[in-house]
Simulated scan of single mutants.
Amino acid sequence: MNNLQRACLHVLIWALILILFVYISSRSGNLGNAVVIFLYFGLINITVFYINYLYILPRFLNSRRYLGCAVSILLLIMSSAVIKYAVASFFREIVLIRGPNRDYYVTFWEYIIVASVTGAFFVFISTAFKFAGDWFLNEKVRKNLENEKLTAELAFLKSQINPHFLFNSLNNIYSLAYQRSEKTPAAILKLSEIMRYMLQDSNEPTVPLEREIRYLQNYIELQKLRFKDGAFVNFSYSGVDERMQIIPLILIAFVENCFKHGIVTDEAIPLDIKLQVRASELIFEVNNKKNLQNKDVLGGIGLSNVKRRLELSYPGRYELTIENGGLIYYCKLILHL
């Protein structure tokens, strides 16, 4: 909402309030009296509201000149009371006359006290409005800064993944090229598809789950090219809807860990990867044979990176279970999409 729209909204609200009070008052008395009491004096009170809201509070409170602020507010209240009395003097028979028989006129100081209380009320309302507006503005700024911080942190975590994966993949392709393997062109093609996804699609906050699955398939196929005697990998998925979204590159660490620290050449205990979607719940399970000579199961940036990204992107909406006993390494991730 720009300044003009905000000003029009304020004018409309005050106009509706004044019209409502004039209408209510005119039903039990004279319309002219109601217009004088609520329109003229209402405009003075509204002026007090905005002088305090737009001038006194920003000028003195922002610079922490509290004494000057208090003195200015006091002068505003007193001067508005005097102005009201001057206006009331022109409508003496309407505003100043009191009593059951309308035979008593309010004195100057009696009127000043009542008018000062009214002015103080509008000063209080404008001060509360100012503090409430500043609080909401500061809260909005705080949330924006927090979101920017989270975005920057997520970008940093994602940037850790790319060089880490690229380094491992290039090593694999180098080995194939050094051996003059016929698998080298296929490996380069798979790597190019993977890098296209990592450099383009993964820049979005979320991606279609189907693309993430395709990325995992490419990665698995690329890794299988490393093994001369073959790698035994079962990858299955079900319940995937084209509308489902997920943050990119969140599942790769678990799969990469299996190839890096597990054994995938045992046909009796293959690497088993399952992805299931039930309603809005994604269940991702990885089960593989451990390499007992490798003590690092999911170390370095792997596990801490994944956990941090999950905390930032799915706070309170994920469950991560890791079982690392005996010969089998088992990992289960549940995401509430």
Rank of each mutant, 00 (worst) to 15 (best):
M1K: 15
N2P: 03
Q5M: 14
L12G: 15
L12R: 09
L12F: 12
L16K: 04
I17G: 09
L18F: 15
I19K: 08
I19F: 15
I19V: 14
S28E: 02
N30I: 00
F38A: 08
F41G: 03
L43N: 08
I44W: 06
N45M: 15
N45Q: 14
F49T: 10
I51H: 03
Y55W: 06
I56H: 07
L57D: 04
N62C: 03
G68V: 01
V71C: 04
V71W: 04
S72I: 06
I73K: 10
L75G: 13
I77R: 06
I77Q: 01
M78V: 14
S79A: 10
S80N: 06
A81M: 02
V82H: 01
I83D: 04
I83R: 05
K84I: 05
A86C: 06
A88C: 10
F90C: 12
R92I: 08
E93P: 12
I94C: 07
L96G: 14
G99K: 13
F108K: 08
Y111I: 05
A115L: 02
V117N: 06
V117Q: 09
A120N: 02
F122M: 14
F129V: 00
F129H: 08
A132G: 06
A132R: 05
G133A: 15
D134S: 05
W135F: 10
F136R: 08
L137N: 10
K140P: 01
K140H: 05
R142K: 12
K143V: 08
N144D: 10
L145G: 07
E148A: 12
E148F: 01
K149P: 00
T151Y: 00
A152W: 04
A152F: 07
L154G: 07
A155I: 09
A155H: 11
A155C: 06
F156K: 07
L157E: 03
L157V: 02
L157M: 05
P163Q: 02
F165G: 01
F165Q: 03
N168H: 13
N171Q: 04
Y174D: 01
L176Q: 05
E182V: 04
A186T: 11
A187F: 07
I188D: 02
L191Q: 03
R196Q: 02
Y197R: 01
Y197C: 00
L199T: 06
N203P: 04
T206V: 12
V207L: 03
R211D: 14
N218Y: 07
Y219Q: 10
L222P: 01
Q223I: 04
Q223E: 15
K224I: 09
F227T: 13
V233C: 10
D241Q: 11
R243H: 14
M244E: 11
I247T: 11
P248N: 08
I250S: 05
K260D: 03
H261S: 04
G262L: 02
D266Q: 14
P270E: 11
V277Q: 13
A279L: 14
A279S: 15
S280T: 12
S280R: 15
E281H: 06
I283Q: 13
F284P: 02
E285S: 10
N287L: 12
N291W: 10
L292P: 08
Q293K: 12
N294E: 09
N294W: 00
K295E: 09
D296A: 08
N305R: 15
R309I: 09
L310T: 03
E311K: 11
I322R: 06
G325H: 06
L327N: 13
L327H: 13
Y329A: 14
K332I: 00
L333R: 12
L333D: 12
I334Q: 10
L337A: 06
